[in-house]
Protein backbone atom coordinates (compact mmCIF):
# COMPACT_ATOMS: atom_id res chain seq x y z
CA UNK A 1 0.00 0.00 0.00
CA UNK A 2 2.65 2.45 1.07
CA UNK A 3 4.90 1.27 -1.65
CA UNK A 4 2.23 1.99 -4.20
CA UNK A 5 2.01 5.54 -2.95
CA UNK A 6 5.74 5.88 -3.09
CA UNK A 7 5.77 4.67 -6.66
CA UNK A 8 3.05 7.05 -7.72
CA UNK A 9 4.92 9.96 -6.25
CA UNK A 10 8.21 8.82 -7.65
CA UNK A 11 6.73 8.49 -11.12
CA UNK A 12 5.27 11.91 -10.64
CA UNK A 13 8.60 13.41 -9.70
CA UNK A 14 10.29 11.73 -12.62
CA UNK A 15 7.60 12.88 -15.03
CA UNK A 16 7.86 16.42 -13.81
CA UNK A 17 11.62 16.53 -14.05
CA UNK A 18 11.68 14.96 -17.51
CA UNK A 19 9.09 17.38 -18.75
CA UNK A 20 10.82 20.33 -17.15
CA UNK A 21 14.23 19.47 -18.52
CA UNK A 22 13.04 17.52 -21.55
CA UNK A 23 13.53 18.21 -25.20
CA UNK A 24 10.55 20.49 -25.68
CA UNK A 25 10.87 23.20 -23.03
CA UNK A 26 7.77 24.72 -21.48
CA UNK A 27 7.17 28.29 -22.59
CA UNK A 28 7.65 29.85 -19.17
CA UNK A 29 10.87 27.93 -18.63
CA UNK A 30 12.22 28.91 -22.05
CA UNK A 31 12.78 32.63 -21.48
CA UNK A 32 13.77 34.97 -24.30
CA UNK A 33 14.16 38.13 -22.27
CA UNK A 34 15.72 39.28 -18.99
CA UNK A 35 12.42 39.50 -17.08
CA UNK A 36 11.29 36.05 -18.10
CA UNK A 37 14.78 34.80 -17.25
CA UNK A 38 14.53 36.17 -13.69
CA UNK A 39 11.16 34.55 -13.29
CA UNK A 40 12.21 31.24 -14.77
CA UNK A 41 15.24 31.16 -12.47
CA UNK A 42 13.04 31.83 -9.45
CA UNK A 43 10.66 29.12 -10.56
CA UNK A 44 13.37 26.51 -11.04
CA UNK A 45 15.03 27.43 -7.75
CA UNK A 46 11.78 27.10 -5.87
CA UNK A 47 10.88 23.86 -7.64
CA UNK A 48 14.11 22.18 -6.52
CA UNK A 49 13.84 23.54 -3.00
CA UNK A 50 10.21 22.50 -2.69
CA UNK A 51 10.87 19.14 -4.20
CA UNK A 52 13.41 18.65 -1.43
CA UNK A 53 10.79 19.42 1.20
CA UNK A 54 8.26 17.07 -0.36
CA UNK A 55 10.83 14.28 -0.46
CA UNK A 56 11.83 14.82 3.17
CA UNK A 57 8.21 14.74 4.33
CA UNK A 58 7.50 11.71 2.21
CA UNK A 59 10.58 9.90 3.47
CA UNK A 60 9.68 10.53 7.11
CA UNK A 61 6.11 9.46 6.45
CA UNK A 62 7.05 6.23 4.70
CA UNK A 63 9.60 5.41 7.36
CA UNK A 64 7.18 6.01 10.23
CA UNK A 65 4.36 4.14 8.57
CA UNK A 66 6.57 1.11 7.88
CA UNK A 67 8.18 1.06 11.27
CA UNK A 68 5.19 1.71 13.49
CA UNK A 69 2.43 -0.08 11.62
CA UNK A 70 0.32 -2.23 13.89
CA UNK A 71 1.31 -5.47 12.15
CA UNK A 72 4.93 -4.67 12.91
CA UNK A 73 4.32 -4.27 16.65
CA UNK A 74 3.81 -6.78 19.44
CA UNK A 75 0.15 -7.37 20.27
CA UNK A 76 0.34 -5.89 23.74
CA UNK A 77 2.30 -2.79 22.71
CA UNK A 78 0.82 0.35 24.22
CA UNK A 79 1.96 3.54 22.52
CA UNK A 80 3.38 6.05 25.00
CA UNK A 81 1.85 9.37 25.92
CA UNK A 82 4.14 12.12 24.58
CA UNK A 83 3.16 15.76 25.04
CA UNK A 84 5.68 17.30 22.71
CA UNK A 85 9.15 18.68 23.17
CA UNK A 86 10.11 22.34 22.86
CA UNK A 87 13.36 21.48 21.10
CA UNK A 88 11.69 19.39 18.41
CA UNK A 89 9.04 22.05 17.94
CA UNK A 90 11.69 24.74 17.68
CA UNK A 91 13.41 22.80 14.92
CA UNK A 92 10.08 22.30 13.12
CA UNK A 93 9.51 26.02 13.22
CA UNK A 94 13.10 27.06 12.67
CA UNK A 95 13.85 25.21 9.47
CA UNK A 96 10.73 26.42 7.63
CA UNK A 97 11.47 29.94 8.84
CA UNK A 98 14.95 29.78 7.37
CA UNK A 99 13.55 28.53 4.07
CA UNK A 100 10.88 31.22 4.05
CA UNK A 101 13.42 33.95 4.83
CA UNK A 102 15.64 32.72 2.02
CA UNK A 103 12.76 32.66 -0.46
CA UNK A 104 11.53 36.03 0.76
CA UNK A 105 14.87 37.60 -0.04
CA UNK A 106 14.86 36.05 -3.49
CA UNK A 107 11.27 37.10 -4.00
CA UNK A 108 11.76 40.72 -2.92
CA UNK A 109 14.88 41.07 -5.05
CA UNK A 110 13.08 39.74 -8.11
CA UNK A 111 10.10 41.98 -7.42
CA UNK A 112 12.22 45.05 -7.81
CA UNK A 113 13.93 43.59 -10.87
CA UNK A 114 10.77 42.83 -12.81
CA UNK A 115 9.24 46.17 -11.90
CA UNK A 116 12.15 48.14 -13.34
CA UNK A 117 13.78 48.58 -16.73
CA UNK A 118 15.15 45.15 -17.63
CA UNK A 119 18.68 44.44 -16.47
CA UNK A 120 21.28 45.26 -19.07
CA UNK A 121 19.04 47.77 -20.85
CA UNK A 122 19.12 50.61 -18.34
CA UNK A 123 21.33 52.82 -20.46
CA UNK A 124 18.89 53.28 -23.32
CA UNK A 125 15.56 55.01 -23.58
CA UNK A 126 12.78 52.40 -23.43
CA UNK A 127 10.29 52.19 -26.24
CA UNK A 128 6.83 53.12 -24.91
CA UNK A 129 3.93 51.12 -26.29
CA UNK A 130 0.36 51.54 -25.12
CA UNK A 131 -1.44 48.21 -25.09
CA UNK A 132 -5.15 48.46 -24.55
CA UNK A 133 -7.65 45.65 -24.69
CA UNK A 134 -11.24 45.67 -25.82
CA UNK A 135 -13.56 42.69 -26.16
CA UNK A 136 -11.68 40.61 -27.42
CA UNK A 137 -8.76 42.33 -29.11
CA UNK A 138 -5.53 44.10 -28.31
CA UNK A 139 -4.76 47.57 -29.62
CA UNK A 140 -1.10 48.55 -29.65
CA UNK A 141 -0.32 52.23 -29.92
CA UNK A 142 3.20 53.46 -30.62
CA UNK A 143 3.04 57.17 -29.70
CA UNK A 144 6.63 57.87 -30.76
CA UNK A 145 6.27 56.18 -34.12
CA UNK A 146 2.67 57.34 -34.52
CA UNK A 147 1.47 53.87 -35.42
CA UNK A 148 -1.33 51.69 -34.13
CA UNK A 149 -1.73 47.96 -34.71
CA UNK A 150 -4.43 45.51 -33.76
CA UNK A 151 -3.68 42.01 -32.50
CA UNK A 152 -0.02 41.98 -33.38
CA UNK A 153 3.04 43.58 -32.01
CA UNK A 154 6.35 44.36 -33.67
CA UNK A 155 9.13 45.26 -31.32
CA UNK A 156 12.82 45.91 -31.73
CA UNK A 157 14.95 43.25 -30.08
CA UNK A 158 17.66 44.34 -27.68
CA UNK A 159 15.75 47.30 -26.44
CA UNK A 160 13.70 47.80 -23.30
CA UNK A 161 9.98 48.11 -23.92
CA UNK A 162 7.68 49.89 -21.52
CA UNK A 163 4.13 48.70 -21.96
CA UNK A 164 1.38 50.97 -20.70
CA UNK A 165 -1.67 48.78 -20.15
CA UNK A 166 -5.33 49.63 -19.87
CA UNK A 167 -8.63 48.24 -20.96
CA UNK A 168 -11.85 49.21 -22.66
CA UNK A 169 -14.10 46.99 -20.61
CA UNK A 170 -13.38 43.99 -18.37
CA UNK A 171 -10.08 43.53 -16.60
CA UNK A 172 -7.65 41.74 -18.87
CA UNK A 173 -4.10 40.59 -18.37
CA UNK A 174 -1.34 41.20 -20.85
CA UNK A 175 0.93 38.21 -21.06
CA UNK A 176 3.83 37.19 -23.31
CA UNK A 177 5.12 34.12 -21.43
CA UNK A 178 8.53 33.99 -23.09
CA UNK A 179 9.30 37.64 -22.48
CA UNK A 180 7.96 37.89 -18.94
CA UNK A 181 5.00 37.58 -16.66
CA UNK A 182 1.66 39.24 -17.03
CA UNK A 183 0.04 42.37 -15.70
CA UNK A 184 -3.56 43.55 -15.51
CA UNK A 185 -5.07 46.08 -17.87
CA UNK A 186 -7.93 47.94 -16.24
CA UNK A 187 -10.32 50.60 -17.39
CA UNK A 188 -9.62 53.28 -14.81
CA UNK A 189 -5.86 53.29 -14.54
CA UNK A 190 -2.73 52.56 -16.49
CA UNK A 191 -0.29 49.89 -15.36
CA UNK A 192 3.26 49.55 -16.55
CA UNK A 193 5.00 46.38 -17.60
CA UNK A 194 8.70 46.32 -18.41
CA UNK A 195 9.83 43.75 -20.94
CA UNK A 196 12.64 43.22 -23.40
CA UNK A 197 13.50 40.60 -26.00
CA UNK A 198 17.14 39.55 -26.10
CA UNK A 199 17.06 38.43 -29.73
CA UNK A 200 14.73 38.52 -32.73
CA UNK A 201 12.02 35.87 -32.66
CA UNK A 202 8.33 35.13 -32.72
CA UNK A 203 6.36 34.82 -29.50
CA UNK A 204 2.77 34.25 -28.63
CA UNK A 205 0.92 36.57 -26.30
CA UNK A 206 -2.55 36.56 -24.88
CA UNK A 207 -4.98 38.01 -22.46
CA UNK A 208 -4.72 35.70 -19.47
CA UNK A 209 -7.57 37.11 -17.40
CA UNK A 210 -11.06 35.81 -18.11
CA UNK A 211 -13.03 38.47 -19.92
CA UNK A 212 -16.17 36.85 -21.23
CA UNK A 213 -17.36 34.83 -24.18
CA UNK A 214 -14.48 35.55 -26.55
CA UNK A 215 -11.73 35.12 -24.00
CA UNK A 216 -10.17 31.93 -25.35
CA UNK A 217 -9.25 33.52 -28.69
CA UNK A 218 -8.08 36.80 -27.20
CA UNK A 219 -4.49 36.34 -28.37
CA UNK A 220 -1.87 38.28 -30.27
CA UNK A 221 1.45 37.62 -31.92
CA UNK A 222 4.71 39.26 -31.05
CA UNK A 223 7.61 39.60 -33.44
CA UNK A 224 10.92 40.88 -32.16
CA UNK A 225 13.17 42.09 -34.96
CA UNK A 226 16.49 43.78 -35.35
CA UNK A 227 16.36 47.56 -34.85
CA UNK A 228 17.03 48.07 -38.57
CA UNK A 229 14.14 45.83 -39.59
CA UNK A 230 11.98 47.60 -37.08
CA UNK A 231 12.74 51.00 -38.59
CA UNK A 232 11.95 49.61 -42.02
CA UNK A 233 8.64 48.39 -40.75
CA UNK A 234 7.80 51.76 -39.22
CA UNK A 235 8.57 53.44 -42.48
CA UNK A 236 6.53 50.97 -44.44
CA UNK A 237 3.54 51.51 -42.20
CA UNK A 238 3.75 55.24 -42.58
CA UNK A 239 3.70 54.81 -46.33
CA UNK A 240 0.99 52.22 -46.68
CA UNK A 241 -1.33 52.13 -43.66
CA UNK A 242 -4.58 54.13 -43.51
CA UNK A 243 -5.03 56.76 -40.85
CA UNK A 244 -6.87 55.77 -37.66
CA UNK A 245 -9.97 57.94 -37.39
CA UNK A 246 -12.17 58.23 -34.36
CA UNK A 247 -14.99 56.45 -36.20
CA UNK A 248 -12.72 53.67 -37.25
CA UNK A 249 -11.53 53.22 -33.68
CA UNK A 250 -15.10 53.12 -32.39
CA UNK A 251 -15.75 50.41 -34.94
CA UNK A 252 -12.71 48.47 -33.76
CA UNK A 253 -13.94 48.61 -30.18
CA UNK A 254 -17.13 46.72 -31.04
CA UNK A 255 -17.10 43.30 -29.33
CA UNK A 256 -15.79 40.53 -31.52
CA UNK A 257 -12.64 39.06 -32.94
CA UNK A 258 -10.62 40.78 -35.62
CA UNK A 259 -7.56 39.78 -37.55
CA UNK A 260 -4.49 41.95 -37.71
CA UNK A 261 -4.69 45.50 -38.94
CA UNK A 262 -2.37 48.50 -39.02
CA UNK A 263 -2.93 52.25 -38.92
CA UNK A 264 -1.00 55.44 -38.83
CA UNK A 265 -1.81 57.70 -35.92
CA UNK A 266 -2.88 56.39 -32.53
CA UNK A 267 -6.17 56.48 -30.69
CA UNK A 268 -4.39 58.20 -27.82
CA UNK A 269 -4.88 61.49 -29.66
CA UNK A 270 -8.65 61.45 -29.38
CA UNK A 271 -9.12 58.90 -26.58
CA UNK A 272 -6.29 59.31 -24.10
CA UNK A 273 -5.28 56.59 -21.71
CA UNK A 274 -6.74 56.93 -18.18
CA UNK A 275 -3.38 57.88 -16.74
CA UNK A 276 -4.76 60.19 -14.11
CA UNK A 277 -6.53 57.53 -12.21
CA UNK A 278 -9.51 58.63 -10.21
CA UNK A 279 -7.60 59.74 -7.19
CA UNK A 280 -6.57 56.50 -5.64
CA UNK A 281 -3.41 57.97 -4.19
CA UNK A 282 -3.31 61.74 -4.00
CA UNK A 283 -5.91 63.85 -2.28
CA UNK A 284 -6.26 66.79 -4.60
CA UNK A 285 -7.61 64.74 -7.45
CA UNK A 286 -10.98 66.37 -7.10
CA UNK A 287 -9.74 69.31 -9.07
CA UNK A 288 -7.80 67.36 -11.62
CA UNK A 289 -10.77 65.09 -12.05
CA UNK A 290 -13.00 67.96 -12.95
CA UNK A 291 -10.44 69.24 -15.34
CA UNK A 292 -10.19 65.89 -16.94
CA UNK A 293 -13.87 65.80 -17.62
CA UNK A 294 -14.40 69.38 -18.62
CA UNK A 295 -11.37 70.11 -20.64
CA UNK A 296 -10.70 67.10 -22.71
CA UNK A 297 -8.86 68.91 -25.42
CA UNK A 298 -6.22 70.69 -23.41
CA UNK A 299 -5.79 67.59 -21.32
CA UNK A 300 -4.91 65.58 -24.39
CA UNK A 301 -2.02 67.72 -25.36
CA UNK A 302 -0.73 67.69 -21.80
CA UNK A 303 -0.87 63.98 -21.79
CA UNK A 304 0.98 63.77 -25.00
CA UNK A 305 3.86 65.95 -24.09
CA UNK A 306 4.14 63.90 -20.94
CA UNK A 307 4.65 60.69 -22.89
CA UNK A 308 7.25 62.00 -25.20
CA UNK A 309 9.19 63.28 -22.25
CA UNK A 310 9.44 59.81 -20.79
Amino acid sequence: MKLKMKWILLTMVITISTVLTGCEPLLVLDPKGPQAKTQADDIMLSIWLMLGIVIVVLAILVFVLLKYRASNQPKDYEPPHIEGSPIVEAICIGIPIIIVIFLSIVSVKSNYEVEATPAGYEDQEPLVIYASSSNWKWHFSYPEENIETVNYLYIPADRAIEFKLYSYGPITSFWIPQLGGQKYAMSDMVTTLHLAADAPGEFSGRNANFSGAGFAENTFEVTAMTPADYLDWVEEVHETAPALTEDKFEELLEPGHLGRSTYTGTHLEFAPAPEHDHGSTDNNTNESEHEQHNEHESHDSDEHSEHTNH
Binding site: H278, G279, S280, N283, T285, N286, E289, H293
Partner: peptide, 12 residues
Protein backbone atom coordinates in the same frame (compact mmCIF):
# COMPACT_ATOMS: atom_id res chain seq x y z
CA UNK B 1 -12.70 55.99 2.05
CA UNK B 2 -11.54 54.27 -1.12
CA UNK B 3 -14.25 55.90 -3.19
CA UNK B 4 -14.37 59.22 -1.34
CA UNK B 5 -12.56 61.18 -4.03
CA UNK B 6 -13.98 59.32 -6.98
CA UNK B 7 -16.79 61.73 -7.60
CA UNK B 8 -17.00 61.37 -11.37
CA UNK B 9 -19.26 64.12 -12.71
CA UNK B 10 -21.08 64.48 -9.40
CA UNK B 11 -20.56 66.73 -6.41
CA UNK B 12 -18.00 66.18 -3.67
Amino acid sequence: FTLENRTGNGPT
